[in-house]
């Protein structure tokens, strides 16, 4: 038995000694950032599909296989993956991914979360005790996550540290330049109110000076009730709201009904690259979001 284990470990060691470092990202926005920073030196696996609800992903056993041999895990943190990541990590038994090790990047580290509830009660719906975890859509926060990822990669693969640093600087410069474009595109609509199916856009709104504060869900995670929708419609008419943001996993029919009752447009948004056509990386995703919203608000 011991011999078999020894041979197996040697074989495994040989496999893992290949050049690329293995990276697992729970969500595709984190995966995209990892690709920007890692370039050809990393191979990235993304667990959740970009089109599905990130809170309710199945902890399927194949994810255990991915986590078992990976060098780096990038997760959103702030209880975003609370429903599915812990049992995966329990089964993966990969000490490199412990919190505090360089192989673990929690994107929420160092991010100041919005909407932290003063009182944690589930009577308020599916609120996050630590604050709203949908922060990836703020490009400035994305830069910070990218920097965090670059530090992790450098610690694990010091030989290529210079490349990671250079990639980070390139990404940062790209975001800085893009921010000028995005800011200019949305500037005319500063201060406008916008409706959304679910409260996943406070960071996006904060960045570009938009008030995304009317929600089709009466409380986070609670399906829209007819009476609540009636109120929303009245409010949207009164405030002349022009856009309703929905994500791929929301019930678009409900948003369409509200839109036809109010004259607003349904805007398909997504937090995760790959969920909308032509959004295979982070910058393209924000590009798409900004242009779609600007078109709808015109």
């Amino acid at each position: 038995m011991k011999k078999i284990l020894l041979i197996l470990s040697i074989v495994l060691g040989a496999f893992s000694a290949q050049a690329k470092i293995n990276v697992v990202a729970t969500l595709s926005d984190l995966g995209s950032l990892a690709r920007e920073i890692g370039g050809d030196n990393v191979s990235v696996t993304v667990l959740a599909k970009p089109t599905e609800d990130p809170h309710f992903v199945d902890a399927r056993p194949s994810f255990v296989v991915a986590l078992r041999s990976t060098d780096v895990l990038i997760d959103g943190g702030a209880e975003l993956e609370l429903g599915w990541l812990p049992p995966l990590l329990q089964n993966a038994r990969n000490a490199k991914l412990d919190i505090g090790k360089p192989g673990r990047v929690q994107a929420s580290q160092g991010v100041r979360l919005m909407n932290v509830p003063a009182n944690v009660t589930r009577a308020a719906g599916d609120v996050h005790a630590l604050g709203n975890p949908h922060f990836g859509v703020d490009p400035i926060i994305a830069k910070a996550i990218a920097q965090h990822i670059a530090q992790s990669f450098s610690a694990i693969d010091p030989a290529n540290a210079a490349a990671y640093d250079a990639n980070y600087k390139k990404f940062e410069a790209a975001i800085n330049a893009k921010l000028q474009q995005w800011g200019a595109a949305l500037l005319p609509f500063k201060g406008q109110h916008i409706a959304a199916y679910h409260d996943s856009w406070p960071y996006f709104g904060h960045r570009f000076g938009l008030e995304i504060d009317i929600f089709l869900e009466p409380k986070p995670g609670i399906p829209p009730s007819p009476s609540h929708l009636a109120e929303v419609i009245a409010q949207m008419k009164a405030q002349k709201i022009k856009a309703i943001i929905v994500e791929p996993y929301h019930d678009r029919k409900i948003a369409e009904r509200v839109a036809s009752a109010t004259g607003a447009k349904v805007v398909d948004f997504a937090q995760y690259p790959g969920a909308l056509p032509g959004t295979d990386n982070y910058i393209k995703l924000i590009d798409t979001l900004v242009s779609r919203l600007a078109a709808a608000l015109k």
């Binding site: 919190i99 505090g100 991010v111 400035i140 830069k143 000028q180």
Partner: peptide, 27 residues
């Protein structure tokens, strides 16, 4: 310029990562 940093939302990641050992399992 449109601001490209925002100290009110992100702490320095360097601080986050340097304390490698014995970090309790939250931020």
């Amino acid at each position: 310029q449109f601001p490209t940093t925002d100290e009110s939302v992100v702490a320095t990641p360097a601080g986050a990562i340097s304390s490698a050992t014995g970090a309790p399992p939250t931020e």
